[in-house]
Design a protein around this nucleic acid. Sequence first.
DNA 1: TCCTCCCTGTTC
DNA 2: GAACAGGGAGGA
Length: 283
Amino acid sequence: MPELPEVETVARTLAPHVNGSRITGVEVLRASAVHPLSLPPATLAGLVIAGVRRRGKLILLDVAPADKPRNPGGVPSLVAVHLRMTGRLLPRPAGTAPGPYTRWLLDLEKPDGTPQRLFFDDTRAFGTVFAATPGLLQQWEFWRGLGPEPLELTPDGFDRRLSGRRAIKAALLDQRVVAGIGNIYADEALHRAGIDPRRPVADLGPAERRRLLGALKDVLALAIDQCGSSIRDYRDADGNAGAFQNSFAVYGRAGKACLGCGETLSGRRVAGRATVFCPRCQR
DNA sequence: TCCTCCCTGTTC
DNA sequence: GAACAGGGAGGA
């Protein structure tokens, strides 16, 4: 499940394949893979991919007309791709046929003239693409509400975003609080910080909040260094798996011994998600 | 603030 | 053949 570290890895590995490439064609094989607010993907034809970035769990392709420095109105300046659970962005040689799970694809021409394709494959078909002007992007509630990047967040900033009586895990998963955290890194960070995922946000003291932000940054940075975690589907743009799944302390380890204290790890649903934590280390 | 649904492959 | 995985939309 691509979360921040996986999406960051995809952006980094995809960039060298597509930077400077001109979009010569667009094919949508599954209409539901296009966000309802998106401009028609066909409007991307003729634009050049200027860069690949990440915001939260979104991959952002900056696009611009080849001959003009600024985008005229109505022409997309950005393509936001959400991989959700099983989405993959894969460069392929020109002429490669779409697979059974290919949802859309771009025909590209690299700066040296070599043709290429960029596939969006997604077995579960939850992923979406959103071609947008800056104005259109602002109409997207999810985008407008996206919280800060956790790696750039200060303790004060984190503190300001934490409020209410819901479980701390629910807050971490809320993309309006912090952008990019999903089930894996929420559980891992809470374990590192020694905080019970069910604790109400309002009950967390200043020291615990600081510890949690520190744990979140540590675990995200470590995971980025390992090119993310591959549970099953996740691969980067070069088709490589990540390695951080080998460092999980709690995710997927319910019933096994806590690596910290040896206690049996608990598994239950918190915030509607499978959650694993140590009843002794996490209070 | 919580629950259900979307979608499909994997596991029980 | 049902349960499960899960981010986010939408409804209770």
